[in-house]
Design a protein around this nucleic acid. Structure first.
Length: 486
RNA sequence: GGGCCUGUAGCUUAGCUAGGUAGAGCGAUCGGCUCUUAACCGAUAGGUCAAGGGUUCGAACCCCUUCAGGCCCGCCA
């Protein structure tokens, strides 16, 4: 594609160099951030300051010009008067400075006749030249392919995108601060694991040359964090990138971020309290306690309901009187596949199918059948269940937590059952992790744990209905060299 | 994996179920303008209509294939 702007800029840069003007000078030093001036306009009024930023718009009126200068999310208007800055600099501005360029300006802080906070340029300096025209902010960039593949352009042009990732950053730092204030420590555990565990998912496989072994990218860091509880740290967490080799859609990306949190001497009830407190705190500090996502209104201010999974199934007519044959027929009807039937997993699948979408306002679904996970403590009052919770918001699963299983013999037994299920063809059954069981044999205190999907949490708090909107660089198929022209 | 929709200038798009030289706004370039902020006025340039193949005298348009994306469904967080 011919871009005349690009070719013109190539020429212009050549000319600038011949004139002795460096289009990419190394020593541009503004005295003030734009935000400092805009946030304290009155204090700086009449003072001479220097600042720098990108030109988003420039409007010439003969011997007068206005530009919008933006830096780090803050914008200020620059005013250029030929009689103040001089003929040559004004001519230079008109001829060699374009929208999209970075400009350094020194001048007096004033207000224009219309009252707009401005810096009246006495001196200017080209800080960095751009080679493309900046697309007009008014129209924005709407094409998803451009927005996701050239995210820097999306963020540059679309203010909403800029703000989403500011919010994401604040949410994650707020989360870390909240957990640290609770006395928890962030730990870093391996991304490359010889045995993948902690969740049901298909992994990415890789090979470690140094020891000539196949490794996996982690699907979870649960089993490592629990080893750290064994090790004697009573509260740990990790904001972790996890990797699952599954489909890409509006709520799934192959790499995603999950915070897992483990704390000794608490159970799943305590972890629900903590999860709820954390999410409400993040909602309040990011100014959105009632949100709309995908047309659904969600109220984060009310206490999160806690409902037993079996009670929700009972509302759908599935009770302990429902026979296995009837359950199998229902699985068939909804096209749900279980490599090897067992009642607990069947109930879990049917729950997801029948109930999940209805869970708009935050709700903890608790007390799952024990076959749904091998890492959770058996329920203190019903041996067919486990002390597990899942938090749903807006029809999405946002968090999953347990009273952690710390009985090494039972853990070994449950892992063997998972192994049998693998042999029957369940590719998502947990791998047998001998090293983890060995750790449990040394003794793990009673522990509560939870994993919270950060991307989905950010979706809720920023009111976005696609995970791609909250991932800086969502996974996209690479553009074929034959089709690629820019 | 199944269904529906989309891809036209740097950006936003019209034209596609009437097959007949591809149009606009913004942006760019040149000129004018001392208070604009989607600035304005005048002129100019800018297109392999996602890619490939077919039908046709003639294809952005009809057909086939491919690529990329979106939405819904199925499966996993």
């Amino acid at each position: 594609m011919s871009r005349i702007d690009y070719e013109q800029r190539v020429e212009m840069i050549k000319t600038l160099r011949e004139m002795g003007v460096d289009p990419y000078p190394p020593d541009v030093k503004p005295d003030y951030a734009v935000s400092e001036i805009t946030e304290n306009a009155d204090a700086y009024m009449g003072k001479t300051v220097s600042l720098a930023g990108r030109i988003y718009s420039i409007r010439f009126h003969g011997k007068l010009a206005f530009a919008d200068i933006r830096q780090n999310g803050f914008q200020i208007q620059a005013m250029f008067r030929k009689d103040i800055m001089g003929d040559e600099p004004y001519k230079f501005l008109k001829k060699y400075v374009d929208k999209g360029d970075f400009l350094w300006i020194k001048g007096e802080v004033i207000r224009s006749k219309r009252g707009e906070l401005s810096i009246l340029a006495a001196e200017i300096r080209l800080a960095a030249k751009a080679m493309y025209d900046l697309p007009h902010e008014w129209f924005g960039i709407e094409d998803m392919r451009t927005r996701y593949r050239q995210r820097y352009l999306d963020i540059l042009i679309n203010k909403d995108s800029f703000d989403v990732f500011v919010m994401r950053s604040r949410i994650v730092s707020g989360l870390r601060r909240y957990l640290e204030d609770m006395g928890l420590m962030e730990m870093e555990t391996p991304v490359l694991q010889p045995v993948y565990g902690g969740a049901s998912a298909k992994p990415f496989k890789t090979h470690v040359n140094a020891i000539d072994r196949d490794y996996y990218l982690r699907i979870s860091d649960e089993l490592y964090l629990k080893r750290l509880i064994v090790a004697g740290y009573d509260g740990v967490f990790e904001v972790a990138k996890d990797f699952r080799n599954e489909d890409i859609d509006t709520t799934h990306n192959p790499e995603f971020t999950m915070v897992e949190i483990y704390k000794a001497y608490v159970d799943y009830n305590d972890m629900m309290d903590m999860t709820e407190g954390l999410i409400r705190h993040l909602a309040e500090t990011n100014g959105a306690t009632t949100v709309t996502i995908g047309g659904k209104n969600i109220d984060l201010t009310k206490p999160f309901r806690r409902v037993k999974m079996l009670d929700m199934l009972a509302e759908k007519g599935i009770t302990d009187r429902t026979t296995d044959e009837e359950l199998k027929a229902m699985l068939e009807k909804y096209n749900l596949k279980l490599p090897a039937y067992n009642r607990g997993q069947a109930l879990g699948k049917l729950f997801e199918k029948l109930c999940e979408d209805e869970l708009v306002d935050p709700v903890f679904v608790i007390d799952h059948p024990k076959e749904t996970t091998p890492l959770c403590k058996i329920h203190r009052s019903d041996p067919s269940l486990v002390e597990r919770f899942e938090l749903y918001i807006g029809g999405m699963e946002l968090a999953n937590g347990y009273s952690e299983l710390n009985d090494p013999q039972l853990q070994e037994h449950l892992f063997r059952e998972e192994a049998e299920r693998r042999d029957l063809g369940d590719v998502e059954a947990h791998e047998y992790d001998e090293d983890f069981i060995e750790a449990l044999r040394w003794g793990m205190p009673p522990t509560g744990g939870v994993g919270i999907g950060i991307d989905r949490l950010v979706m809720v708090l920023t009111q976005k209905d696609s995970i791609k909107e909250v991932l800086l660089f969502p996974m996209m198929a690479p553009i074929n060299a034959e089709n690629h022209e820019n």
